[in-house]
């Protein structure tokens, strides 16, 4: 059973269609990146999942149940959206409230403070926190109930490089321990480092949903220099790649992972003098997918 399901989810704000039949399943035990331009429907989807908005039609469920039907929801799902903090309350007291809301012991507070590196600043007013510290406190609040699912809206925002690395490592550890992470981000390079799967949304509709590695393999291009152009072309075409001759000793290959290309060439006894990747970063892939969708057929 998928951990989270969006089924034909539609949300209208007056004449604006924020979501239009959005359907996707988020697998458990993986980090799934939720990608899309500003206003594409990412935050709306997350808010509907968490019961903060009501859908016009369709459903968003967690293990088959609506968020509001979970007995102790923050012990199942930890969320970082744009929830705020009272500026005159210190972090420890904020977490005392979060712990009470999750119905967990206050003994979780030092644990999550340590986890996000806020132990030293725990008794300072949140109003004096930097954006990065607020992000870490938001993550601590999400973790207070020791949930198995994390729903994070732009969690890397405001973090310094060290904070990004720490969060990335934490999320990997969380997923490797069986947890599920569903995170939206506009930092595509960062997501490429962190995520197992990617869900791409545009204008409220699903554009793509697959493992990041498959997306990269499916849309990346390799430019290969070889003295055996014809043999390599035939071998790669036999593996399903699209091969275009771009020079007397050069071909451009799309649709195959570079690892597959190298092994195929070796199997065919072809010498590769040079192989360069082109367009195998998520930003290029994202742009290509969005453009493909928008191009009239």
């Amino acid at each position: 059973m998928p951990t989270m399901s969006f089924t034909d989810l539609t949300k209208h704000y007056g004449p604006v269609k924020a979501l239009d039949g959005f359907t996707v399943d988020i697998a458990s035990g993986r980090i799934t990146a939720f990608l899309g331009a500003n206003g594409s429907g990412k935050t709306t989807s997350m808010r509907l999942l968490l019961g903060l908005s009501e859908p016009t039609s369709g459903s968003a469920t967690i293990d088959g149940r609506a968020y509001r039907d979970l007995a102790e929801p923050t012990r199942v799902v930890g969320a970082v959206l744009d929830q705020g903090f009272h500026p005159n309350r210190n972090a420890r007291n904020h977490l005392r409230i979060a712990a009470a809301q999750a119905n967990v012991s206050a003994s979780r507070i030092p644990v999550v403070l340590e986890l996000v590196g806020l132990t030293e600043a725990a008794d300072r007013r949140v109003g004096g926190y930097s954006l990065g510290m607020r992000q870490r406190l938001a993550l601590a609040s999400a973790l207070i109930g020791d949930p198995t699912i994390l729903v994070l809206d732009e969690p890397f925002n405001g973090l310094d490089p060290e904070g990004i690395t720490t969060l990335r490592n934490f999320l990997r550890h969380f997923a490797d321990s069986g947890g599920t992470v569903f995170l939206s981000s506009h930092l595509l390079a960062e997501v490429a480092h962190s995520a197992d799967d990617a869900v791409i949304i545009d204008h409220g509709r699903l554009v793509a949903s697959s493992p990041v590695a498959t997306l990269v393999a499916g849309t990346s291009t390799a430019v290969i220099t070889t003295p055996d152009v014809d043999v390599l072309t035939a071998a790669l075409q036999a593996r399903g790649g699209t091969v275009t001759r771009t020079g007397p000793d050069q071909v451009t290959v799309t649709g195959l992972d570079r690892d597959v290309i190298g092994r195929t060439a070796a199997g065919a006894g072809v010498v590769i003098l040079d192989m360069r990747g082109d367009g195998d970063d998520l930003e290029t892939i994202f742009a290509a997918l969005i453009n493909d969708k928008e191009r009239p057929s």
Binding site: R68, T74, Q83, G84, F85
Partner: peptide, 14 residues
């Protein structure tokens, strides 16, 4: 005003 209501509603959706 401080958007803490979101945390409250996440903790108790009713």
């Amino acid at each position: 005003r401080h958007r803490t209501i979101m945390g409250a509603y996440l903790g108790e959706p009713r």
